[in-house]
Amino acid sequence: MNMANSQPGSMMTNTLGKAASQQMSREVTVSAQDVKVYYGDTQAIKGINLDIYRNEVIAFIGPSGCGKSTFLRVLNRMNDTIDGCRVEGKVTLDGEDIYDKSLDVVLLRARVGMVFQKPNPFPKSIFENIAYGPRLHGLASSKTDLEGIVESSLKRAGLWNEVKDRLDQPGTGLSGGQQQRLCIARTIAVSPEMILMDEPCSALDPIATAKVEELISELSREYTIAIVTHSMQQAARVSHRTAYFHLGDLIEVNATDKVFTQPEHELTEAYITGRFG
């Protein structure tokens, strides 16, 4: 079953995914080497190796508790904020060790932004939600500059037309789907290289979900995206590659069209076809 997608005999190659992956360069953005994560004495991640390429959308799937969120948080050191959580191994971003003592974690989290399951806008105006990051990181030299960043971020998040007349109103007053796109706009306002998304659509209705998914494929032109999702269909729709996690192990990572038509590992097949427990 070890056939690469280009070989004869692999049917049903998703043409969209293929076009996208052809555009994708093979430059490594993030490299995880033998990453292990412990919560106190319990090991949640058991020595994972994974390279994530520039401008790819990689989906992390697997049963609840298999370590998807934990691994995602490794990539921008969000686990540092969890008591008793310990990370071993090496993680590089553009070749630079992100667990190096001299590294500025605040800056790292701007370079590797994160969007959560539940939209979490600050209790501030729509404008301030976006302006906060660029101001913090000194990305804008003037008020006009800042306004420009706010506008372009909202545009790229596909939210501009819906909010341009009420930028001074609270971000929390938007619908769930709009709030999630606001959070995405906030993430891209600081010009990240990579965006981590942990079940970004699980609180959204199908239309809001479709908008976020559309956004993901547009954003992948500029950013590298890792997304955790419980929706197999979502993983199949938005990602170029899919990684299947199981009990803290990375079982299989392959082109998404391959994973969903000819998974290599029987655990992957059992999971994506709903043959579990």
Binding site: M12, M232, Q233, A236, F260, T261, Q262, P263, T268, E269, I272, T273, G274
Partner: peptide
């Protein structure tokens, strides 16, 4: 109804 994948999808095709 089921959004089948992998072997299930191939069986349907």
């Amino acid at each position: 109804r089921r959004q089948p994948a992998a072997g299930d999808l191939r069986m349907l095709i």
